[in-house]
Design a protein around this nucleic acid. Sequence first.
RNA 1: CGCGGGGUAGAGCAGUGGCAGCUCGCGAGGCUCAUAAUCUCGAGGUCCUGGGUUCGAAUCCCAGCCCCGCAACCA
Length: 473
Amino acid sequence: MNKFYLTTAIPYVNGKPHIGHALEYFQADTVRNYHRLLGEETLLLSGADENALKNVQKAEEEGIKVEEFLNRNSKVFEKAFSDLGIKLDVFQRGSDKIRHWPGVQKLWQLCFKNGDIYKKTYGGYYCVGCESFKTEKELVNGLCPEHQKKPELVREENYFFRLSKYQNQLTNLIETNELKIIPENKRAETLSFIKSGLEDFSISRSYQRAHGIGVPVPGDKTQIIYVWFDALDIYMTGIGFGINEKEWNKWWPADLHIIGKDINRFHTVYWPAMLLSAGLPLPKEILIHSFINSGGQKMSKTLGNVIDPFEIANKYGVEALRYYLLSQIPLSEDGDFTIDRFLEIYTADLTNGLGNLAARVAKLSQNNKIKAPNPEQVFDNKLKEYFKNYQFSEALAYLWTKVAEVNREINQRKPWELSGNEAKLTILNLIKEIQYIAFNLQPFLPQTAAKILNQFSGHIEYQSPLFPRIKNS
RNA sequence: CGCGGGGUAGAGCAGUGGCAGCUCGCGAGGCUCAUAAUCUCGAGGUCCUGGGUUCGAAUCCCAGCCCCGCAACCA
């Protein structure tokens, strides 16, 4: 049996899940459902990146222990999945000393043995207020713009990863699509970034500066493994890397990482380089989604245009939100979400489109006492094509042309004027078409598809609307 | 010389050289199985501006204006 292992990005838990996370999670679940329906064994992983100074700062601000802070915030993200109707197989936390830490240290050692980890003194302007380094460009009149303080010139010895060594190898892997980056414009960005020249990056912090939080560097108690060299490993430690080789071997390499455009570099450059250094297989595909604006602008509290996905899901249903995000947000460009637009799409596509179609065919079937045939269990070839490049919106638009076709067909044939065998054959055909749409819809809207398939099996009855009309308030 | 995306009907978008398209919304008509749903027809566009190339440009080139991101050890 084929396997399909995919991951969402590992969110940084300092903050709340937003609509961009919802988009990513729906995309991941859709891909997973598709592969599962193809008969493959699937595993969907997410997790929490808990290694960051900001977490420490935030916890201190709130006056609670770091551990408590992490527990609480990670739960919020884990819960986001179930709130969105998605079942994860693994939620791997970065603070997990039993499952995560051994794998991180193992990866470190593999890279170290290969000579790609070395010590270097790193100097820079360090703002105590921000607890982070500032580049000279960021400073205004030599002061930190946020704190109006003069940053200290700090020198610290850290471990670095020899990223520069992998420039040619990475270029080649991406150009040959051995490491496939989707969509094309993100792939081009990565390539141009690599060609502009790669610099080694630091992968550790002093124990002091990290406040002792994080995975210790093997053999050096004064240093803690930092951010990317820790967080990315979750994709492997979550499936047993470092503690359960059998499990890890079964699933690795990942078939797909789904991420946002902000962390493109780390996934398409740093991560593959780390794996190359360690002599491990690379993920096969990386799908990069863009951001969601509201009314053409970045969502911000100040503008008051922030859309809370959980509020929408509560009010109008998870699958309505899911439909909007999968169908209206383009793959390669930033998308837009406003309530007005959402309601328009809801009414046009779900209420008037799919929902009404199911209702009218159900009533026709009921009136004529037609029993449903068994649905055909094969995906549409066009849909399969769309899945190759994860063209969710194109796939849904295609399915909705089927909805329109069936509506047209009903109006042309006027089954309500027919009787006997003629009525039966006509309506039977309509039922088959609905089943076909529902079967193909399963990856995208699993609950809705299941409802339709269930309604159109055996004895067919008219039921309450799939998508109740939303009255204009 | 930082890098990139974008400016096409009221709204959201597709369209990379050959009579300007899609969805929603809007108007008129038809139908009654259906959630005032569906179906047919229609109105609506200086394709950001100014030059240029071409028999022909939304589409290629040059200049400019406007909007939005990113600017590597920071998720």
